[in-house]
Design a protein around this nucleic acid. Structure first.
Lengths: 358, 358
DNA sequence: CCGGCCGCTGGAACCGCTTTCGGCCCGGGA
DNA sequence: TCCCGGGCCGAAAGCGGTTCCAGCGGCCGG
């Protein structure tokens, strides 16, 4: 009898039946529509009904379902993120970490969660970026450090989903981006070197696959021109934006017959590699060869001597991207924005006045 | 006429109507059920129908909807992640980054994406962790570095959703965790110090809010006992697991009348702070005072002298957590596992043989 | 020759929630 | 007194899939 009773008279307490708004409705003697209304805070419900529904909602331990809601609403309160993966990239890259935390913080306040797409998943491999984003029904997209060489990534700019990218110039009707003033920052770096008497300056960059790499080289060249420095093509090397790459590039550089007095590395990681290369060569960084980096990642302040560098305001990058994205999501007519945030010179100890060579 | 035609004769091409399996079904002259079957690769569909449906699916540019599928299926192919936020935590913490990338990599292969819950969102604040996880219908949970002081976090261990945590001992019917062998690692560290003749050893830890902090202290104490070292309570200090905390703790330490010959820091960040404090005090790290850290984060190899430390195999932590989680998700009867992964000593330059004091 | 099984397919009931449309009731102005 | 408008609420049609169940025809064994 007990068994019968429990399975017939209170079917809503069955096994693991999740409680729905129908359960609430039945128990409160109202319609599901009304329950939905109070749950969503619509105004046109009498105080009495509202109170009753809320009470029962509590009692039953009701939990809404994002999937059901999303299906009906066509909004998921989710931001999808494509972030570059690689040995020194993605979650592993200090700049990106800051960007991401800041980003998540501001979208989080509005109730969004962020979904990291796995880039080795079968779906992405087969269907491509846009398909995955659409599949998950994300309200917006963050694209972080992805290479511009991937056509699938470029396609995101025209897919209609609001989209902000960082370090990649995706623009489209619903796509904008934010980036540091990389060329300005590079000029800043060279200028600082020049102020210390350096005129023989090498540049370590990347294969120009990334926008920052490209822009920083542009900035370097522009500065060379502006300050009428000698330009030596064999002094611009590829360091792949990694520590080891920087090490190798500078090792090669130091074997040349004629040496620069300063090295501008387009990333701190490369700069740190460069510093090691210099030391391994028996030279002193600062005294013998000045080094300046770019990014101002955490380790820059930890190494000795402290790395002078151009700081990216990563927290601001993330914040601005988030704000712009939210705007695009919330007002369908909002135009996409391209935002560039200024860099700032942080001087530590790796740049010293040039001393005349023997 | 044209207008009429386009709005009456081909309603499926209306505005932005997303194409559904019904559209495919109609066009292929089959039922939606059949379409669903071929889309999901069920075997019981004739080759002819299958081919036709696939062709039309292509033509129409059909995209499935995760929300609809999830609603019907009760699976979301999503792993939810709660990761600690804080100035030196979460995405910003080097160990966690490795863990996360590895984790995402392995779950990604199985088609899962990972959803980072925003911890400042209104929902989480109001409803709590479990509610949010349930709301999003995640198939599994990753809990990373969350404090054990939060009852909401503890509750996750019994919420029924498969759950793996790292650096936090959540266990329950569907909850396990993976952690480094923190006490073993700490013993390893002390042992190495002892082998170099050190007997006066200080310990910098945290407020014991975190499991790693707690366990490393336990390990330290156990080692002290084992090697019959003098135990000085005033030589165990709180460094808050941050660089600045380590700096401050060691600064205080160095003002004492009697100094240890070596310092064991329960994290590399603190160790790096410690190194700076030692230098600022006019002492040389290594020569005057040895330092050993824990974690082996990237900067550990970048500072000079290179930091000797106990490495956490973070990549393995993430991988194992992912594997265990997948197992729990895929086989409902799988028992939760608690996994501990061994640490490994990496010797660089901050530990030197003790020299007798003046 | 007939019953039954098997391969294939369609019908339809969900999954849990939102939202439009309209109805009911009540108060107030004409 | 009648009508209109507004506050409150219910019915029902989706949103896009999945899956159980039943049905149909053909083939095989008895």
């Amino acid at each position: 009898m007990v068994a019968v009773k429990s399975s017939e008279k209170s079917p809503e307490r069955n096994r693991t039946h999740v409680v729905t708004i129908y359960d609430i409705a039945k128990r409160a003697g109202v319609s599901p529509a009304t329950v939905s209304r109070v749950l969503n805070g619509y105004p046109d419900v009498s105080l009495k009904t509202r109170a009753k529904v809320q009470k029962i909602t509590q009692e039953l331990g009701y939990q809404p379902s994002a999937m059901a809601r999303g299906l009906a609403t066509k909004r998921s309160m989710t931001i999808g993120a494509f972030v570059k993966v690689g040995p020194d990239d993605g979650l592993r890259h200090p700049v990106f970490q800051e960007v991401l935390t800041a980003f998540q913080h501001v979208v989080g306040e509005k109730g969004y969660d962020v979904l990291f797409f796995s880039q080795n998943g079968p779906a992405l491999q087969r269907e491509g970026y846009e398909a995955v984003a659409r599949y998950r029904n994300v309200d917006g997209l963050l694209v972080l450090g992805m290479p511009r060489t991937d056509p699938g990534v470029i396609a995101l700019s025209t897919c209609g989903i609001p989209c902000m990218s960082i370090d990649l110039d995706l623009i489209g009707p619903r796509a904008g981006y934010v980036t540091s003033d990389n060329v300005g920052g590079a000029i800043q770096a060279v200028e600082f070197l020049v102020q210390h008497g350096h005129r023989a300056i090498a540049f370590i960059g990347d294969k120009f696959a990334t926008k920052p790499g490209h822009d920083r080289l542009i900035g370097f060249q522009r500065a060379v021109q502006e300050f009428r420095l000698p330009f030596r093509p064999d002094w611009v090397l590829d360091g792949d934006f990694t520590e080891i790459g920087g090490y190798q590039a500078v090792s090669r550089l130091l074997e040349m017959s004629e040496l620069p007095t300063a090295i501008f590395c387009a990333s701190d990681l490369m700069a740190i590699g460069a510093m090691r290369a210099i030391r391994d060569r028996g030279l002193r960084v600062g005294e013998d060869i000045s080094v300046i980096g770019f990014d101002d990642i955490r380790p820059a302040s930890m190494v000795t001597p402290g790395l002078t560098t151009i700081r990216q305001r990563s927290e601001e990058l993330g914040r601005r991207a988030a704000q712009a994205l939210l705007r695009m999501i919330e007002e369908p007519t909002a135009l996409p924005s391209v935002i560039t945030v200024a860099t700032e010179l942080v001087v530590r100890e790796t740049v010293r006045p040039v001393v005349p060579r023997g």
